[in-house]
Design a protein around this nucleic acid. Structure first.
Lengths: 205, 205
DNA sequence: CCTGAGCCATTTGTATACAATAAGTGGGTC
DNA sequence: GACCCACTTATTGTATACAAATGGCTCAGG
């Protein structure tokens, strides 16, 4: 509901209200709130009340910066550990992306799904449960999630090409190359977000 | 209890047993288990049963590697953002460390407390709630916590000197310098842990 | 002796009730 | 009119009961 924008940033989340809305009791709602708090989608006041997290521009830049660092680290590790099956899976998912964006009207949700799977394989290949755990905190952000919704054709194709470069780096097992591409890939996503956000802001005025 | 070693790695944690042991109901125990799972001190089986996490050598190396990366990033950011009060607090805590390790029998718990506060100030000065959130997952590890217990006099004094270097880097607002020292500082801690662990292993045989 | 199926015990998931605490509200006083 | 205190209401914390699912154990059969 947060990702879908049904719950505006800053709004208070009452356990009971959510329980009613989801037709469950407070107990599972509490669990969910705790997890969302860990993922920084929710912040809690001193008196333990829950609010939808509000993201400042600095927060967003910060999140992208950390994500770039961690995903680059994942790529670095993955380069020397990735196996043939994972490499092939990367190619398959990137081909899926190519197909999804080839049509006149790009299929964004298919793109997003393949994109998610692509990055997930890299994290998996990195073989670091800790790194994977940290990254999930950063990629489930509403901001990141919505960015691609505003991707134009150019950004979609650039993303596909960068993935191809990543596959090439992995095939050569070049850790430094893979990490560099990944850093650029995420930074590019950040600026694409900034552009998309600027458009949204203007539209709101 | 995990940190104190009362619950050996791999042992199953029943919510009810813990509730009985702590004289509370299962509800708060469940909350605690969820948090500890997020902090990777507990892993859960496919069937949602909880076990004390067992750390392989690779896990530990991995954790230190990530911690080095994130703390270096914190130092990098802190260098340009730290204020006079925080800088002074760093000096105070490092003086506390100096005093604690000066005696014939070093006061390890005081050392640990000042050390923790020292690093916390840097993370705070970095001004990134996300980074802070990620780091708490890594520094509360049993392994990291116990390392200093086995620090010898040389390691304690080296740690103090490295902190002095960090303060100098912050005073000059040199982000690169601060990050470099921090990376070395954590790597040094890793090797100190390895040495201490090797001693423990031999003692166990 | 090994294998598998069914039953029992253990463990977690969910619902609900009550307690404690914080926030909002109204009235009274200075 | 402003401020403070008491009171009501909203919200979260905890305890407990029951349901569901999983694990392990026993016993029958090969």
């Amino acid at each position: 509901m947060i990702l879908a924008g049904e719950l505006p940033p800053g709004s208070q989340l009452s356990e009971e209200a959510l329980a009613l809305r989801c037709a469950v009791s407070r107990t599972p709602v509490r669990d969910a709130l705790r997890r969302l708090e860990a993922d920084l989608l929710i912040r809690r006041s001193e008196s333990q009340r829950s609010f939808v997290a509000d993201w400042s521009d600095d927060d967003i830049e910060d999140a992208f910066e950390l994500r770039a660092m961690l995903e680059a680290q994942a790529a670095r590790r993955a380069a020397s550990r990735i196996n043939a099956a994972q490499l092939e899976a990367l190619r398959v998912h990137n081909h899926g992306i190519e197909t999804a964006i080839a049509a006149d009207l790009p299929d964004i949700s298919t793109f997003l799904e393949h994109n998610r799977a692509f990055h997930e394989i890299i994290v998996e290949a990195a073989g670091s449960p800790r790194l994977a755990s940290l990254l999930t905190r950063l990629i489930e952000q509403p901001v990141v999630w919505r960015t691609a919704q505003n991707y134009d054709r150019e950004n979609l194709h650039r993303s596909h090409r960068e993935h191809e470069e990543l596959v090439a780096a992995f095939a050569r097992r070049d850790a430094g190359w893979a990490a560099s591409i990944m850093t650029g890939h995420i930074r590019r996503a950040y600026y694409a977000y900034l552009d998309a956000y600027a458009v949204q802001r203007q539209a709101a005025e």
